[in-house]
Amino acid sequence: MLNRFCKPVCQGVALAVALCAGVASADVRISDGWLRAVPPVSPTMAGYLTVTNEGDTSVNITGARSEIAGHAMLHSMKTLDDGTRKMGHLHHVMLAPGESFSFLPGGDHLMLMKLQRVPQPGESVTVCLTQAEGEAICAGLPVLREAPSDS
């Protein structure tokens, strides 16, 4: 009963914290971020967010890292002509001033690998986007069992 009440509340609070506390670098903002909760035996998990360049020079996002993952990367997702879906390494995302890019379920996403531990729903995990030049852009992302739009 407590769990039933706590789950949506905890997820909501975690989500609100992440959505409100998005800004993590001077001119680059992370928003709408979350990680999809997975079973404790999972070796990988995916993350989603929107990154916006609010500065006046271009930004080149070249990778990702996280405190809980031995390795993280940007992943592309393509739908091929036969309808199958293929993942691959997304080497960089170039953002002109004012541009945004969204990593979304079923699309391009962040992939956290070699997990040192698997965070569970309700936790917040720091995830950083690395740039070709300049500091990494970090934000605390809530771990959610369901996509924010589905819950």
Partner: peptide, 14 residues
């Protein structure tokens, strides 16, 4: 497959 990071866990959750 369970090592699939994006689509499969999403489908399982749905």
């Amino acid at each position: 497959y369970t090592h699939c990071p994006d689509i499969c866990p999403a489908v399982l959750a749905q």
